[in-house]
Design a protein around this nucleic acid. Structure first.
Length: 427
RNA sequence: GCGGUCAUCGCAUAGCCUGGCCAUUGCGCCGGAUUGCUAAUCCGGUGGGUCUACCCACGAGGGUUCGAAUCCCUCUGAUCGCGCCA
């Protein structure tokens, strides 16, 4: 959420951002209009309250000097001031509410470096890593490989839970755990503290971290408790500091989160989404930084470096893309994606998303740090380290052998008892 | 689940019983002054708002009242005891 002061003092910044994104300016003007009306209503109410306070003091003084007449006179005078105040208060609250409901939907201000573009086809390449693997046979797509090796059970999972859920079995399940350990250790060495979060959150905290449309399309609601299953550990780890004033000496706070992630994936269909590429539940290791505003852009680069170093260590070929204005979501000010080469699918596809959300989430969550001139919003950053289901897909497609078995990346071998190749599952 | 106690926006606290002027004090932090050697002492600041005045804020939301941190109700969270489970 953008601070209301920005609408009052520099609306041109927001308007220019809307133009860059190619979205209508109307709601910005509407927020400004509602804010003006709210100010007027608030002022009116404050005047009534002031009258009441003066009267109350008069009564107190009169009672002290035992002047019954005077106190009764004032009491009669302000008898219905109370109902007037609550009316005006309700009006002001309703206006503030309308203003902020609208303001919650206004996206973050993009960083100047974000390339202009209409949709994901206009994202620009940032860098290319590793070498495209060459095969002396026709490489298979991952859903063929997992089926042939019996590493994944989609139909049995559908029977007990629904489509897009899966059982992970045998060596592939073991490699999933190795990936988790590898990523956690890797980031631990770079100063990130491991945190395991709750996997459900209440509505208020959740509204602080996500695009509001996600409540319809992404999150599972848990009834009757009015909770939501987390779509990523970014959400609980960021919201963790809701309503807090953080001592500047504690910044930056660097965490590596590990959790299952739950996504409804409403409207997602298609041949390219078969297998375990797009599923309702997967495990993700996530980097989170809560930072001083002055440092967030350098931390953003650090997060990307951590990702590229980690994925380089796994020996995979991928590219980094710079997300353009039209493809950026509501919350991030700047975003890099890592897209791994899938030789079976013959495409680069998203495996990592690395964002600087600046003060957008912090404003919603009232997460501040202490400064000499009062409290100011912190910046929040997040980046995937490894989403295991997608990492597995990239690994098995890039490391597949002619017989359908898969070489284990060297970095993971020590975590799998020295094993070098994933063997098929026996049932 | 049941019952008791509690909740003061950096942390910790007073005020509540018995409603009324200014929400107290300590620590921490920031700024300044002064003396000077790993620091001490003194002064000021340190919740929010259309920020000298004024209004709001004592977990959240309601109620009583001319007036609520204070009295009443509901909710949330913490904590202790009992129950239940491991």
């Amino acid at each position: 959420m953008l601070p209301i002061s920005l609408f009052r003092e520099k609306p041109e910044v927001i308007l220019a951002d809307h133009d860059k994104r190619g979205i209508s300016r109307d709601s910005v003007y509407e927020v400004i209009r509602l804010d003006g009306e709210w100010k007027a209503a608030l002022h009116e109410m404050e005047q009534s309250r002031r009258q009441r306070n003066i009267a109350a003091k008069g009564i107190a003084a009169a009672k002290k000097s035992d002047d019954k007449e005077e106190s009764n006179r004032i009491m009669a005078e302000v008898k219905n001031l109370g109902s007037q105040i609550s009316e005006l208060d309700e009006k002001a609250k309703s206006l503030a509410n309308q203003r902020d409901t609208l303001r919650m939907r206004i996206p973050n201000i993009l960083h100047d470096s974000v390339p202009e573009g209409v949709d994901e086809s206009e994202n620009t390449q940032h860098s290319m890593h590793g070498e495209k693997p060459v095969f002396e046979f026709e490489p298979k797509v991952h859903n063929e490989l997992i089926e042939q090796n019996k590493w994944v059970e989609l139909e049995r999972a559908a029977k007990i839970a629904g489509s897009r859920f899966f059982f992970l079995k045998g060596d592939l399940a073991r490699m999933e755990l190795a990936l988790q350990t590898f990523a956690i250790d890797f980031l631990g060495e770079r100063g990130f503290t491991l945190v395991q979060p709750p996997v459900m959150m209440n509505r208020e905290a959740y509204e602080g971290v996500t695009d509001l449309n996600d409540f319809e399309t992404v999150m599972y609601g848990v009834e009757p408790d009015k909770l939501y299953m987390i779509a990523t550990s970014e959400h609980p780890l960021t919201a963790m500091f809701m309503d807090e004033v953080i001592e500047p000496s504690l910044l930056p706070i660097k965490m590596v989160g590990v959790s299952p992630c739950f996504r409804r994936e409403v409207g997602a269909h298609g041949l390219s989404d078969r297998g375990i590429w797009r599923v309702h539940q997967f495990t993700k290791i996530e980097q989170i930084i809560i930072s001083h505003p002055d440092d967030s852009w350098s931390h953003h680069e650090d997060l990307l470096t951590n990702c590229t170093d980690l994925w380089d260590a796994l020996g995979l070929h991928y590219e980094v893309v710079n997300i353009c204005t039209g493809d950026m979501g509501t919350v991030a000010a700047r975003k890099y994606d890592l897209e791994a080469w899938l030789p079976g699918a013959k495409a680069y596809k998203e495996i990592v998303s690395c964002s600087n959300c600046t003060d957008y989430q912090a404003n919603r969550l009232r997460m501040r740090y202490r400064t000499p001139d009062g409290n100011a919003a912190v910046h929040t950053l997040n980046s995937t380290a490894v989403a295991t289901s997608r990492a597995l897909v990239a690994i098995i497609e890039q490391n597949q052998m002619e017989d359908g078995r898969v070489r284990i990346p060297e970095a993971l071998q020590p975590l799998m008892g020295g094993k070098k190749v994933l063997d098929p599952c026996n049932f």
